[in-house]
Design a protein around this nucleic acid. Sequence first.
DNA 1: GATCCATGGATTGTTGACAATCCATTCTAG
DNA 2: CTAGAATGGATTGTCAACAATCCATGGATC
Lengths: 229, 229
Amino acid sequence: MSSPQSFKRVNRESTAGLITRQLREAIMYGRLRPGAQLSEAILAAEFGVSRGPLREATQRLVQEGLVRAEPNRGLFVKELDEHEIRDLYAARIAIETAAGRTIIRKGQQQAVAELRTAYEAMQRAAEEGALAQLSDADLRFHEVLVGGAGSARLQRMHQTLMVETRMCLTALQGTYRDPEDQVAEHQRIAEAIAAGDSESLVEAIEEHMQEALDRLVPGSRSAGTATTV
Amino acid sequence: MSSPQSFKRVNRESTAGLITRQLREAIMYGRLRPGAQLSEAILAAEFGVSRGPLREATQRLVQEGLVRAEPNRGLFVKELDEHEIRDLYAARIAIETAAGRTIIRKGQQQAVAELRTAYEAMQRAAEEGALAQLSDADLRFHEVLVGGAGSARLQRMHQTLMVETRMCLTALQGTYRDPEDQVAEHQRIAEAIAAGDSESLVEAIEEHMQEALDRLVPGSRSAGTATTV
DNA sequence: GATCCATGGATTGTTGACAATCCATTCTAG
DNA sequence: CTAGAATGGATTGTCAACAATCCATGGATC
């Protein structure tokens, strides 16, 4: 009865959980387009389950804010208009700034190290011209940033925001951006934290987010910083 | 066909929504004790609905983090141990600090005014010795603080945290605290924002939270600031 | 020709019954 | 007396059918 290697508990995830994850991914990567209607009957048939578990899955997505439910009408993939995108990035600024400040305040050396690692992964991807990997490493950097603060609640809230961020990136798919700039912005953030400089951390994050916003919402506020191609 | 006064849309909330709200309130105010098991069958009978809608309601609470679901075992009201409480307050520090900084950065005069109003309500309740009202005004102050930042996402995340906070307060029910101190701490926060002083804002919020933590988790870190009765 | 009403199709909302799983208890064998 | 297996009760997990609701289409009336 000894376990020579640790086995994974089988089927530990609930059916609703499995479906939720697949649907979320489909929304994140644009396979389910914003505004598209989700038919319970059709989806249930596709997943090969009854409407019960499927309903549970969709309800989770509703509460995550990825799906909008109109009573007696149906479920629709949420569309992110300009206002929503601004709100999303405002929330990300709040969370990520707070996370960075926490790392500084607590002097979490390990978090700093992990940030550097994440940053180096971005740099490598940029040098190799691997855009998909660069994008993944980018998201990972922000996950590490918030994870480093060590608050499970903060991290969970941030995860939801990052799913929406990925939705935005998917919508931007195809537009080009100079990888060097992208990497440099993250280096600023990482180094500000490493140096324990809260002021430049705030600046770095706000500018980083503004940069993203400028690309997502072209008719934005300041034309001065819009240096993107 | 004219509407002499605006009528409320009837039955606009779903059954699951109604049940969710009632269960959440019961948990918040301790009518459902932490650790208590929630039986779907019993609850469904009490609400007079089938297990379908009830399940939907409980699932929402699970995702909010108020209820823990053990597969094939049952649902249990989440218990907040010391670690959880610390995490909760860390998250609140992050969100509320970020909200305050946003108000300062954007120079939201209206938010400042609302904060003062909320603060005055606390002061009035304290003078009248109305402890229940003081507690409500206290929570309201924090809601106004985050609401003032104008981010729907931030506010939603904060609401969840405040529900858990209320759970903690319910657990503390009966312990006394000097209302004057309580009011003064909020005044510090409000005035720091009004003065646009980010540094003292951060200090005020952190000390305010630490004060609350000291009462919730007696064997806490610093004995120096523990001046509570 | 425009407006109102009735009808039909489609969707979600709800239900009660059935299956699978788990835990505690009891029983049995050593 | 103890360790292990069988069993029973209770709970969640799942399903297919039914009811309620909504929107669009088409037709009748003025």
